[in-house]
Design a protein around this nucleic acid. Structure first.
Lengths: 197, 197, 197, 197
DNA sequence: GATGAATGAGTTTTCATTCAT
DNA sequence: CATGAATGAAAACTCATTCAT
């Protein structure tokens, strides 16, 4: 049992050591050698824990996501109004504290787009459902609290795709100057239209 | 007298020959050698026209985009209602005839996300503004035709980011079964809310 | 006849156009393409006049050498004392005005050292004898003018190898600070020992 | 436990395997592939020990030089007269047993002449000072033993440049038939002039 | 378990030379 | 004569992966 825990911990250590590397050089420009050195272990040892580079990135994204979700949950619990909750839910795409995570998310998305790997697809699908359900619960609560009309749910769910797309645009073009105001404004417009008065 | 070659045409030929290769193997899995073979020319010749693989993809995307825009314009001109125009504008993301282009767009987005190349950024920015202006003109026309209220413009513009994001999700997850209905529905919902009655 | 002159002139033009290229990038880093462009002609045309890159360099060195020899002769004719003549003879290795020629000589020597080409050997041999005879004439004149003792000729001829070696050392190491004073001093020492008083 | 390899020894092995290749084909005509094959290792392995071809040649020259210096020291220790020592010191340029080393020295000089590499310059400078000090010690000893007059030191040091230059001439031209007699004669002439009688 | 030395397939890139026009 | 488009051989270099210790 103890050994298994150690093994899990070591995987985390390796993944976390990879984080700095990704941020400074980009996923496609780092080698297993560099990861091993950053993790303070031998090249061969990396293969004891991961089958390939992608798996390490997976592990890293999973760790960071879990951590991030925990924080997000805490942040959301402090808020009362549904509008604020929705805004907080999507602030990942612009708040300063998530900048590193965003960079990794960006690069991970690039991999996801060019990959045909089934595990990648499953992982992304799983994430999608997790966040969808989460958002749905927030909306549902808003409806129950009479802050929103029931028929409006789907429109709100569209913010999901909207923020995702706006983020992609903001990083692939120099056309979007203020992503926060763009996202917040969109949320506000929808809520203004749809909040029960 | 030397052989006179239409350099621009040759560039197009090479880029177009690359298209099938990208569709069957993916941008990152093809080599300059394969491109040369596909174009029926020598490896060195490719380098006479392009500095590297990315430039070829650029050229290809530019060609395909121009062609696509021409077709889109023709299609849009046949339509009368603003709602239909908007739907047609965004049907790129799901219609069968654009499937190949979509695949290339997907892979190009992956490159854009992982690239730090300034030309890439500029190209994407330029594209963004092109489509934004185009959409704006459609909306503006709808407003002038009293099909839409003026104050609603920005909300409609949000469909831009929405479709982009929905597309990314549809290709990186298996959670989105019917992208067309998702996009159309979102457009309908917004129009239903906002059309002048 | 006129055409032959033109051909000779064109060879010179090409060679001279190569000079700037050599000085700025080094012989081994320039391509036939660049030479053609610098000479304002087509790549294929270069081959009408030269068999390969080395031949162009040959031609250039020959031209520059002839020009240099002419100047040297004029300079030497202005001098009277044998000692001054000898110093002037070898000042090629340090005077400012010959800096460019020296750079080319240096690079040419590098080629000569790594080449097994017979023409290269013959060319160098020819140059060697030319300068040797020239120097010999100066010495002989000095002897006849009773400025030098006859038995000393060979020792003086050694300055030939000395300057050559000192030059090589001065460009391949950073140990020789003042080549002029090193050469002049050596000449002076020999003359002081050997001049007829 | 990983395989323990004497990295320094392996570097030497690779460099030494390169020696035969250089002698038979010339530095500029050999490839990393050939070096790897000659050393009985894989291409990638060469890159584990050296960054490029020049580094291998450096290593080789260093090894051979050290070995050569050791032998030279032993040879010099057996001699008594300064004149003989000086002759022995410079016999590298003509004795049969050093022919291979001379060939490599020749090619290395060619590299040094066309290189702008700082390490190359430093290496050559270091070598220069080493030999200069060595020669100086011999001369100094000769002076102390009253075999030479003190004021003659610099003239003798000129033999350095002389032999270097004579060697270059002997390999780049076919004008010098007997380098040994040329060098020995020069040394003799100077000594005859300058030995204390 | 851990290691890191060894590997070679795979890729990019260069450029002298040819030859059709 | 002049050209420059086309070429492909050749070389450097990378790096994921293996495996003996």
């Amino acid at each position: 049992m103890a050994i298994i825990v150690d093994k899990e911990q070591k995987k985390k250590d390796i993944a976390l050591a990879t984080k700095a590397l990704i941020l400074s050089k980009g996923i496609s420009n780092i080698t297993i050698s560099q990861i091993a050195k950053a993790a303070g272990i031998g090249k061969g040892t990396v293969y004891e824990y991961f089958k390939n580079k992608d798996e390490i990135v997976f592990e890293l994204v999973e760790i960071l996501m879990q951590e991030h979700n925990k924080q997000k949950e805490a942040q959301l619990n402090k808020l009362i109004s549904t509008r604020e909750k929705v805004k907080k839910f999507f602030d990942f795409f612009y708040v300063d504290e998530d900048q590193e995570l965003r960079e990794i998310y960006k690069q991970f998305t690039a991999i996801a787009l060019s990959s045909t790997n089934k595990e990648m697809l499953d992982f992304q699908t799983q994430c999608y459902f997790l966040y969808e359900e989460w958002m749905e619960a927030i909306i549902q609560e808003g409806i129950e609290k009479k802050e929103l009309k029931a028929e409006i749910k789907e429109l709100i769910m569209g913010i999901f795709a909207f923020t995702q797309g706006a983020f992609i645009m903001s990083v692939t073009t120099s056309a979007i100057e203020d992503l926060q105001q763009k996202i917040d404004n969109q949320i506000d417009m929808l809520f203004d239209l749809m909040e029960e008065r």
